[in-house]
Every structure is written in structure tokens, then in C-alpha cells.
Design a protein around this nucleic acid. Structure first.
Lengths: 215, 215
DNA sequence: AAACAAACTGACCGTTCGTACTATCATCTA
DNA sequence: TAGATGATAGTACGAACGGTCAGTTTGTTT
């Protein structure tokens, strides 16, 4: 972001900041953003508590920074792969697949970071909540944009409601993630894939453009 | 449960226990089961901390008792109304409606208690998690049982997969709840209703038996 | 080598956490 | 009315919390 880099290498401060945040996302993914504590971070990283604290100035700022890193990771694992696919229905399906894979891969040890953060802060005002809301809204908008293109390209039926379809695909994917954590199995992913494919085929003008629904 | 009642009235101990737990579910619904603290409970209720503590013996036991009360409330607002409806497709639709209503009514100030608890504990072993898993499994089984009856009654297509349809309906409903909290609006419920009706009509042998999909 | 700023440490503050132990209180029975 | 029993209060504990601050280390610049 800033001029923190000096010929490709991170400054000292920026380096430990990264170390702290990488551990922070792991802790927060299992213990929640509120369960994330500066003391635990410092002891696990063998860094003084005040050293950790100095990087952020407040716990809220630490939470926001943690959220920002998690967002970067999400973009890298989900958004970017989708953008590599051909615009329209292909990209939509790739987005669903990439997000399911990202959840199955356990990129964060505690499951999808944003699903956890969203339910944790959905009834608690503040800047952290605002940031989460913005992220979730962006994600839904991203779905909707892709769906709109698919409609314009004639791949999805004219009467498809982009916001509604986005909601449905998001719900199925999101729930698959938490269910797989809760029940500690992967059948949720299989079901989500079936459900998503079924829904897309029912909205597609040419269902054969999509992978077959697995039995 | 036990002989705590004496001719219809609660014993002294059982009475304050209720008071404590009723406040506990409210706090936990917004702050999480881990964010629930004995100290806060005691100060808000003007009861000594040790007085609160004595009822449960440990925080974990308090969490389990809170969960049990939340479960009772859920059953009262969702399961019981569904059971009043005619078995089969009617009951299935009533279950979805009742659960959406229960979320829209904000029975708990922090949104659906179980959705929050599930994501909070989905990666944290212990008795609390076990209890949550059991509840969620019971709920899915309840869906599946109703779906199976609807198939047997010829209301849903023979090739309907009960577990898959249960997963889909649960996902749409659950996500509507957290989305409505997060975005602070009610369009999520409208979308969930549309999506659920659309899905049920596609699986129903006689779609006209279901309410019309609202525009 | 001196100077300087940024990074980091260690000790400490006040508060709250869960939990323990003992004493007091209310209620019912003998 | 005396005693027993269970419910609640009071106090204290060690640990962890977020946060402060003065001082030391480190790396760069001159």
C-alpha cells in the first residue's frame, strides 16, 4: 500500500506486522474476532504484548486489519480464479466452484472467515461490523454482475432475478461451509454442488453448457 | 423437568434460574455463548455473582442450560406450529414459513440463536459444540422426515432426495436470517420465500397445491 | 562516530473474567 | 419453636483482558 517496501523486501516493522496478522486470522477464524486477544498473539509469537499493540493502537484496529487480510486471502482464492474464467455463465459456475474449494481446503483453520465474522457481528454496531457488511455486499454485487452478463449473453433466462439468484447461490455455498465444519464431513459440499447445479440448469437457456449433475 | 414445581408455582431457586436463563439467551444471541459472562448477568439482574454461579457450577454448564432454553423457544415457535399442519407438503411449507417468521419476529434480539451458536462453535470441541451439533442434526432430520412423508403421499416427485432438499431449504432460511440482521432489512426474507417456493414447486407433483410465487 | 527515528521491551494500571469458600437468609419440617 | 435444608450474599483469588509509558534496541543517515 504505502512505501513500506524497500526494493522488494519488507521493512522490519511491516514484516512483523504481517507475522502478527497471519496468526491473527487463524486465531480469529476459530475463536472469533472478539476472541482474538493481543496477549495470546504476543505469547504465541514470542513478541512483547506492547510490541503487538503498538502496530495497531487498539483492539478494534487490530480486528479491522485482520479482516482486511482475510479479505485479501478470499479475493486471491475465490475472486481471482473466477475472473480468469470466461465472462457469463462459465464464470458464475467457476465462482461457485472456487468458493466451495476454498472452503473445503480449509484455508483458515476455523472455516470461512467471513461467514463466522458476519454472524458474530450481525447484531453489534461499530466499524468492524460496517467493514463486514461492506465485504458481504461487495460479494453479492459480484455475483449479480456476473449473472447480469450471463442474462445479456442469453445464457440465463430473461426473467432471471440477479439478486435472487445471487442470494440462493450464496446461501447454498455458505451453509455448505459451516455444515462441513459442524458435522466434520464433506457431504455438505456434494449437496451444495448438486443444489447449485440444479438451480443453474433450471435457469440456463442451454443446460448442457453446464457440467452434469452428479449422482 | 423435575419436581421443581409446587402446585403450579416455581420454587424460589427455579424462579431465579429462569430469570437468569431468560436474560442469558438474550445476551448470548448478540454477544455469543462465549461472550456471555456471569458477571454481566449478575449486575444486570441485581443478583450476586456467586448467586448466579451457584445455579450452574461452571460457565460451560451455564452455556448448556442457555442452549437448552433457546432450543425450547425454537421448538415452541417453529416445530410446534409445523406439527399442527397437515403432514406432508403442507407441513413442509408451514415449517419454512414458521422458521422465517420466527427469524423476522426477532424472538432473540441478536437473531437466530442457533445459527450464531453453530458458526461460533463449529471449530471448537467440547460439550457445547456437541449439543449444538445434535440440535442441528435433529432439525435436518425433522425436515427429512416431513419430506419423506410428502414423497410417500405423492406430493413430491419420487426422485426427490430428502437430505438434499432439507439442506437447501435450511440453507435458504438460515441465510435469510443472518442477511436480514447484517443488512438490516427484510428483503432477504422475501427472497428466501421466493426461492423456497420456487424450489418446492419444481419438486412438487402438483405445484398448484402451493401458494403462488410472489412477484 | 554521532544523531535520529522507528521498532520493540518490560513493568504496570485498572478492570473483568471464572471460580472458590464461608456466612447469612428464607422456607419448610419435626 | 428448633433444626435442617437449600438459596443467595459477600469476599477473595489468580489469571487474562485492553491499554499506557518510559526506556532500550535496531537500522539508517549524515
Amino acid at each position: 500500500m504505502t512505501d513500506a517496501k524497500v526494493d522488494g523486501r519488507l521493512e522490519r516493522g511491516e514484516h512483523t506486522r504481517r507475522l502478527i496478522l497471519e496468526r491473527a486470522v487463524d486465531i480469529a477464524s476459530t475463536n472469533g474476532l472478539e476472541g482474538l486477544s493481543i496477549g495470546r498473539l504476543s505469547s504465541e509469537l514470542a513478541v512483547s504484548k506492547s510490541g503487538v499493540f503498538a502496530h495497531f493502537g487498539s483492539k478494534e484496529e487490530l480486528q479491522l486489519a485482520t479482516l482486511a487480510l482475510a479479505r485479501d486471502v478470499f479475493i486471491e482464492h475465490v475472486i481471482t480464479p473466477a475472473l480468469r474464467a470466461r465472462a457469463g455463465l462459465t464464470r458464475l459456475w467457476e465462482l461457485c466452484e472456487a468458493r466451495l474449494d476454498y472452503m473445503a481446503e480449509r484455508v483458515f483453520p476455523g472455516g470461512c472467515f467471513f461467514s463466522a465474522a458476519a454472524t458474530e457481528f450481525d447484531s453489534r454496531p461499530g466499524r468492524v461490523r460496517d467493514a463486514i457488511v461492506a465485504s458481504e455486499r461487495d460479494l453479492l454485487r459480484f455475483y449479480e454482475g456476473i449473472i447480469t452478463v450471463a442474462i445479456e449473453q442469453g445464457e440465463l433466462a430473461d426473467d432471471t432475478d440477479p439478486a435472487l439468484l445471487a442470494f440462493e447461490l450464496d446461501a447454498l455455498t455458505r451453509t455448505a461451509g459451516t455444515s462441513s465444519m459442524l458435522f466434520d464431513d464433506s457431504v455438505s459440499f456434494t449437496m451444495a454442488r448438486k443444489a447449485i447445479l440444479g438451480r443453474l440448469r433450471s435457469a440456463a437457456t442451454d443446460p448442457s453448457a453446464l457440467p452434469k449433475v452428479p449422482k
